[in-house]
């Protein structure tokens, strides 16, 4: 699936982020290609969250630059990032569980007459689009007026992803999409990600703790530890044991086994 021939959608050069005296990211280089699932792996505190927050415009980098399709960009707000085509699906999914699927799908970007907040929403059109867009990545919702609170975790994840894609995301950042879900729903989310990948022109950055999931769907891997990239490569480049080792930030799992035995 890897389409290394195409230029990268996003490229970061030497991204550094400092919070006071603490260095969260120390010169990260990353290349994200369209049609690829790029797994971003690392232990807690490795700098994954900081990296995606910079990419999605929550805060700026201290130094280094981000290029989108070869052009350097400067994000001052999450709005800039989403306008540039970076759609971030956070862990909490940014959904309002009390309202309907359609209302969530179009939250903040409702289709209204007169283009004013007090213009009437075109509910039928919005219902149709929401259903269609979710069906494209594999979920047929019975009723677009269903409250999001009554949907399963996997369906909610799909809703958030479909929303990001519909509103022009070329790069989809998924922040631990499987972490709070049951086994069956995790599989559902993975299928959804695979379907998005098959659309061909969207790049996916998948942040996860789960190396099994990463190995199932990712085309390319980047490992972070203590704010630095400690390894990267395509699925073919990396053998199974490497992934496990790199996930733990370079520590030997074998050592752990010995340590545990000695207790």
């Amino acid at each position: 699936m890897t389409q290394s021939g195409l230029p990268p959608l996003i490229k970061t050069n030497n991204l550094v982020k400092k919070f006071g005296s603490f260095t969260a990211l120390n010169g990260v280089n990353l290349e994200i290609h369209p049609g690829e699932v790029h797994a971003l792996l690392g232990d807690n505190g490795a700098g994954k969250s900081t990296l995606i927050k910079i990419l999605s415009g929550v805060f700026p980098a201290t130094s280094g630059e981000i290029e989108i399709e070869g052009k350097p960009v400067n994000f001052t707000s999450p709005r800039d990032a989403s306008d540039a085509g970076i759609g971030t699906v956070y862990q909490d999914l940014a959904l309002n569980a009390l309202t309907s699927v359609t209302r969530n799908f179009f939250l903040g970007r409702e289709i209204t007459s007169f283009n004013s907040p007090f213009g009437l929403m075109k509910m039928k059109e919005m219902d149709r689009i929401a259903s269609e867009e979710m069906a494209k990545i594999g979920i047929n919702i019975a009723d677009p007026e269903q409250a999001v609170g009554t949907m399963s975790g996997g369906q909610r994840q799909t809703l958030a992803i479909a929303r990001a894609i519909y509103f022009g995301a070329k790069v989809l950042i998924l922040d631990e999409p499987t972490s709070a879900l049951g086994q069956k729903q995790q599989m559902e989310v993975l299928k959804t990600i695979k379907r998005v990948q098959k659309l061909g022109d969207i790049a996916i950055i998948l942040i996860t703790h789960n190396e099994i999931h990463a190995r199932l769907i990712a085309d390319r891997f980047t490992f972070l530890s203590l704010g630095e990239v400690i390894g990267s490569g395509t699925a073919e480049d990396l053998a199974g044991d490497d992934i496990k080792t790199l996930m733990a930030g370079g520590a030997e799992i074998g050592d752990l086994t010995k340590e545990l035995e000695s207790i």
């Binding site: 309002n96 309202t99 209302r103 179009f106 939250l107 970007r109 907040p117 929403m121 509910m123």
Partner: peptide, 28 residues
Amino acid sequence: YIVLSRTQAGNWIYSTGGNLSAAQANGV
């Protein structure tokens, strides 16, 4: 009734009370 149930402003009111951070993340 019209504002709350039928307009964009209404959806913003619901989301502001329902999930503030979600509303903010979506640009409300």
